[in-house]
Design a protein around this nucleic acid. Structure first.
Lengths: 124, 124
DNA sequence: GTCATTGTATGAAAGTATGCATACAATGGA
DNA sequence: TCCATTGTATGCATACTTTCATACAATGAC
């Protein structure tokens, strides 16, 4: 799984690159819920980056709810919990956030919507 | 043209965001060779960022040969068009990332896609 | 020549990112 | 219990990013 990761010096912070790459792996279904993530130290050594940097990426992913960490054990991809009570409002806000992000990358909203719809299919 | 630009605080340096967005605009053909770029000061004021930050983005683009600057005159898009960026791949990556984020928040992909599609409508 | 415009340059200050070194804390297995 | 593994935390050093303030330099219009 570590082969799917790589960082480079293009101005984008390493922890952001790592965070986004892991997000992509999960979103693409190449990292399934419940699977154990490589150890922070493994990532640090393999990618030749600092443990603190990995820590930061993992911490953000945990805050976003996609990873869960256990001391002395390891880090795992979160099991998809059934949407507890996701309000329309929450959805709208999330969508708006995503829309802004997409715009920032020069990605058209309708294309993004299409891509997401396609992902719905490939995931099951 | 300034409408096509926006920056946000997502960990990625502002000058990188700006640099990449301009690259995308040119690569997409929305900024044609020879056209004059907005003044550095215009960009700075409009995006509410510092002149130095814009300067850095423009400087990198000039170093890459995408822009050429002329004192007292302005900045222009170079005739040599950069190789088209792999937007399809980029879109997929972005979508995958978003998918994982949504999952972490218990948001269904199809609902998100719907919400985004609705946003497309409201935007014009 | 004068003047507004536009790019160029600098220095200080505050915050962030990264690396390096080191240590602590929880877990689970021998 | 002892120990290796894994996440957590800190302190220090260095470099990068951004803002603010200010100034200089070339260009073109008048």
């Amino acid at each position: 799984m570590l082969e799917g990761l790589s960082v480079q010096d293009n101005g984008i912070p390493i922890y952001v690159q790592l965070r986004d790459q892991i997000l992509a792996l999960i979103g693409r279904g190449q990292l399934k819920p419940g699977t154990q993530m490589p150890t922070m130290r493994q990532v640090a050594v393999t990618l030749k980056i600092d443990l603190n940097t990995v820590q930061r990426a993992y911490a953000e992913l945990e805050r976003e709810g996609v990873l869960s960490k256990q001391r002395g054990v390891g880090t795992f991809v979160t099991d998809t919990v059934p949407p507890p009570r996701n309000t329309k409002k929450q959805l709208q806000e999330f969508a708006a956030r995503i829309a802004a992000q997409a715009k920032g990358q020069g990605i058209a909203l309708d294309e993004l919507a299409d891509a997401l719809t396609r992902l719905v299919g490939t995931k099951r």
